[in-house]
Each structure stands twice: as C-alpha cells, then as structure tokens.
Write a protein that binds this DNA or RNA. Structure first.
Lengths: 198, 198, 198, 198
DNA sequence: CATGAATGAGGTTTCATTCAT
DNA sequence: AATGAATGAAACCTCATTCAT
C-alpha cells in the first residue's frame, strides 16, 4: 500500500476519539481514575459530555480503550521475531526499546502500573495482558536457555521483575533518573556475554 | 451500675479501632481506595457508619492511619543498627525480613504499592515515606561502599528497584511464588561475597 | 425570710442545670442554634453528653428553658406597678432598666432577637411572649393617654419599635454604642414633659 | 433536531436560576437557613437535588446569591443623588420607598433581619452590607447637618434604628400594620420642617 | 453530530439521641 | 449520677448517564 498522505494523517490526528483518549489518559494518570470525572475529561478535550458518549460507551469503556491502545503499541515493538531466538544485540535493543516506549508516554505507564493494583480494573484486562506478558517472558527464557543458563525460567522471571521495578522507579521521577547508566547496568547484569558462560 | 472506667473505655477504643483499621485495609487493598465506600467498611467491620466517624476523622484519615501503622511496623525491623555498617549476615537477614513482613500482611502491601500510582493518595504520605526509604537506601549504599563497589549509590538504587519489582510480583500471586529460590537469587546477585571483591 | 446563706448560693451556683444553661446560651448566641451540637455544649459545660439528657429532655427543651429563664428575668423588672399609671420618673427608670438588663447578658439578647426570625423556634414561645409584651405596651399606652397624647396606642407602638431597633443596634456592637447619649435621646423623644403638652 | 443555541441555554439557565432562588428564599425566610435542606428546596422548586448544584456551588452560595440580589435591588432605589444633599421631598420619598420595597418582598426581609443574628451567616455578608448601610447613614447625616440639627450623626443613627425597629415590626405581621399612619409618624418625628429649625 | 440541562443513585459526613455499664 | 460508645436518620454533595433539542 502507498503511505498515507499528509491529509490522511491530519484526519487521524484530528480524530475526536484520539483527542478524547489523550485527554482522558492524561487526567486518569495524573489524578486517578475515580478522581477524574467525565465532565472534566470532556472539558479538557473541548467537547460536550454528550458527545463523549457518542464515542465511548461509558467511563470504563474509555479506560479499557486507553489501556488497549497502549498494550497494542507496546507489544508491537516486541512482536517482531518473537518466535525466533534473541541474539545479544536484540536483547540489548529490547532494553532500549522498553525505556524509549515508556519515555514516549509516561502518563500512560503511570496508568498502566496503577491498574495492577486496582483489582476491579485489572480483572477487565487480565487475560489479554497476561498472555502478552507470558509471551515476552518465554522469549527471554529461550534466550537464557540457549545461553546455557542453569535455571532459565527463574532468570527470565527475575529479569522481568527487575525491569518492572526499574520502570516503576523511572516513572516516579523521570527527570532525575540516570537512564543511560541504568541501561548499562541492566545489560551488564542480565545480558549473557558468551565467554562469561564458561 | 457504675460507669465504665477510663481504662475500660480505652480498651474498647483500641480494640474497635484495630477492627476498623483491619476491615478498611482489607477492602482498600482488594477493591481500591476510591472504590471502597465508608458504608462497605462499616458493614465489613460490623459497626454503624456513624461509629466509624467516632474513631476516624474521615476517609482520608482512615487511610493515613492504615499506612502509618504499616510503615511504623516495617521500619521497626530495619531500624536496629541503622547507623553502623551492614555485615553480610545482616544484609541477608534484611532480605528475609523484607519478605517475612510482606507475607505477614499481603493486603497492606497491595495497598502500599497501589498508593504509588494514585497521585492524590500519594501526596498525603509522600514526605514521611520518602524520608524512611532514603534512610534505608543510605544504609545499603554504605554497605556497598564498604565492600569497595565502584558506584555504591547506583548499586543501592538498583538493589532497591529489584526488591520493589520482586515484591510487587510476589504480592500479585503469593501462592505460586518460589519465595525461597528468589531469596537465594537476590543474595547471589546483590550480596557481595568478600573474595569476590578482589 | 432570712437571706440565703453563702452555702445556699454556692449550691445554686454549682447547680449543673445552671451551668449547662449558661454553656448552651453562650454557644447558641455566638454560633447559632443549629450550628451548636449537644456534644459541644456538654464539652463546654464539662459534663458528658449523657448527663445533659438527665437535665434536659432534648435540644429544643434546652433552648426553651434558656429563653424562659430570660423572659422571666426581664419582666420581673417591669412587673411592679404594672396596673397603675407610670409617672415620668418610672418611664425613665424603665428605659434605664431596659438597657441595664441587656448589658447584663448580651448573649441572651442576641439569642432572643434571633429567635424572632426562626419561626420554628418562635412558635414555641410566641403565646407566652406576646402576652407579656402586650402587657408592657398597654402600660405605655396608658401613660400616653394620661398625658393627653392624641393617639396613645400608636405612640406606644412606635415607642416599642424604637426600643426594639435601638436594642438591636446596641447588641450588634455594644462596645461602640453611645449608651448614655442614646438614653437621653429616647427620653427627650418619647417622654412627655408636662408643659410640653400645652 | 439541531442543538439548542447558546441564547436558548442562557435563557433556560436564567429562568431556572430565578426559580431556584425564589424557592430557596421563601424557605430560608419561613423556616430558617439551617432548618431548610437542599432536598426541600429542590422539591419546592420542582427540580432534582443534582440540578440545584448545577446552578449553585453549594448551600452557602445559594444564600449569598439571594442576599446579593436583594441588596442590589434595595440600594438601587437609594443610589440616585446619593452624593448631593437630600431635600425634604427626597427624605419623604425614601421613607415611602423603604416600605414599598419591603412590601414587595417580605420573605426576603425576614431573611435579611434573621441574618443579623446568625453569626455564621452574617460573617459571609458583613463587609459588603455594612459599607452600603454606612453610605446610607452618611447621606442622612448630611441631611441633618444641612438642616442645622445639633448632633446630626446621632440623629441619623437614631433614625436608622427607628426604621430598623419599625421595619422589623412590619415584617412580623404586615396584615395588621397601620402602614400609612406609621409613615406619617416617621415623617413627623424625623423630617425637619424648615421653620421648626428656628 | 453536538449540546448541556436534568436525573437519581450513591457517596461522605454530622449529630440528636439511646443505652450498657 | 455519670460516662462515652453506638446508632441511624438525614444532611450535603458528586457524578455517570440520559435526553430533548
């Protein structure tokens, strides 16, 4: 297919749905889901309350669509090659990707993490999300297996936990986070240099 | 009959207060702060709504008291010897302590982590909490410095992030978490065996 | 009868009922009836809520007793000679009495006036109060009739209204009220000097 | 159908706002501010509780808007010529105005007077109100000064108090109040006929 | 497609009153 | 006579959602 024209892009950008999602995301992330009223979202998106209900069924639907959109985007980056086996370069690339994606949309990731601790929200997304996460962990596990690590499942899990913890810390205060040094640290700690194996 | 003594009243208050805090904690942790109404808490604690307000100023006060109680308890465990320098034994002991405390009160830790992503809730506790956390990280930093690690501040920070990530994963599904293996993994990865230094 | 002994006075003064009435009066007058809770009154009177209900049936009863006590006191001053005809000296004396009584218990008079505009409260006291007031006005009317004033009923009524208005203004800001000058003004305006008649 | 125009919306708001203010005024005046619940007002105005909060921020805001509207209206009548000096005709005219305005909206004036004795309510309006009242009294004072009265400030103050007292009496029972006779009485007592001066 | 007035259920909070001790 | 824990009705207020236009 031919690439989208500038006009098409403009249309997409101007799409009300997109605007609303952004407005809602920002407010959910900064003020919390329950603390953000539909009224405020509509005002922030410069539309009326009524119109919002033309685009989204209800408040919860809005949240789901936001999370959906984010997950989609995240796993796109990691879906390439997901069946094959990671090289060290790919492993390192994924780390960079991980933080690039977070940096790109910090509010989203605030919301994403908060979700994990709000059971009523989590239950909506749980299945879809856990499938995706398991996929990723399996890829990492294969990587470790291939490198001859003793307990690759554990290693993958610990890697995942580490990334969770670091991402959380990053999100809490992105300005003062030594991002580049941390990336190096992760690579040093979790990427298996081949002669290290011996 | 003669009226109750001051001591009797005090006892009643302490017991009831304890009951309410537990009921509220459980519900806040499982359903989220905003999703839990005072009505539901009162019902869960088998008291009237009105009585709850006899014990706590308002919903926020209830949350603060819960978090306070938890923080107090947590940092008690780590306050011993906080000025001195950790030995390896102490380092390992603290890891065991960390998980023992979490295991003891999983709902509390759910609430604790969820707090970090609910800005309007976090702001209530931020100062008190961050001071305590920094204290802990400084102790860890000294440990690494003393062991001759190159960048002890970074190492301490990464250790903290790792513990955060792992604790989070533990809380999400405590039943299926290989706790003992994980502890060993952490010790292996973050405890500096002295001849390793050279 | 012999005058009350110091001991008897002390008993009266210590009477709980008296204390409670005073505490309640003060708070009703300063903060409004609906804005004053039984709890606060009990605290202010240094007793428990429960005990208050030993002395007074309920909150409204407390109010009624307060107003009652005040009216009793007020009209005591004016009841002497109420059947006879006022001399100018008595007329002037009553003006002095009026302000002396107000000065003695400003909170009470704040409450008294506020009552007139709270129908649900007024209705409780209306009959008793209006009878007393009419008595007084009749005495004044007779005074004017005897002095040969043309429309003594109207004159008495206007005198009453004037005293209401001035008392109201006095109560609002007693400190800055030129009490003595005002008394003279009233006497000059409403007391009939006999040779003025001609 | 096409959506309502901005003008239509404005009209709806103004009409409904007016309705609510009237309903609230009536109930505040007849039952007292604290004795009137938002629920009752809404019912009286034939709207839902929620809608009331669409129009007024809260109960206090509703009260303020009512009082504001009344003060605005009252002082409009007296603002003409306020810098110049009153003639006798104007002085008399103002007396007629005073009672005309009260007669027009008795509930409002009940509320107005009741306010003075509800401290927590008064404090809301005090400053604005006292400024307006002082303005008026100054005009009266100038009138007396110009007529050569000895103590014009006192005379103005007494005039004000008298009008307060009479207005209060009028409001309490408008049906049986000899309005016209009273007006004459006031003019006779407080309007300075020029040859009286000598 | 678009508006915001309108609803009503449900949330937080207060407080007069009762009652076991 | 005295306490304050406990209740429950009712207050204020919010907000997701609907709907006439």
């Amino acid at each position: 297919m031919s690439p989208r024209t500038a006009k098409q892009f403009k249309e997409i950008r101007e799409n009300k749905s997109f605007l609303i999602l952004n407005a809602a995301l920002e407010m959910f992330a900064n003020n919390g889901y329950h603390n953000t009223s539909i009224s405020k979202i509509a005002k922030h998106a410069n539309i009326s309350k009524g119109l919002l209900y033309n685009y989204f069924e209800n408040k919860e639907d809005l949240l789901i669509k936001i999370i959906d959109r984010g997950i989609e985007k995240l796993f796109q980056s990691f879906d390439t090659n997901s069946d094959g086996i990671l090289t060290n370069e790919e492993f390192e690339f994924f780390i960079h990707e991980n933080f690039r994606i977070i940096k790109e949309n910090i509010p989203y990731w605030k919301l994403y993490f908060s979700m994990f601790f709000q059971p009523e929200v989590l239950s909506i997304m749980k299945d879809k999300l856990f499938m995706k996460i398991n996929n990723l962990l399996n890829t990492i596990e294969k990587y470790y297996k291939n490198k001859g690590v003793k307990n690759p499942a554990m290693e993958a899990r610990m890697y995942g936990a580490f990334l969770d913890g670091i991402s959380m810390n990053y999100i809490m205060d992105p300005e003062n986070f030594p991002l580049e040094d941390v990336k190096k640290y992760i690579i040093d700690k979790f990427c298996i240099i081949d002669n290290k194996k011996s």
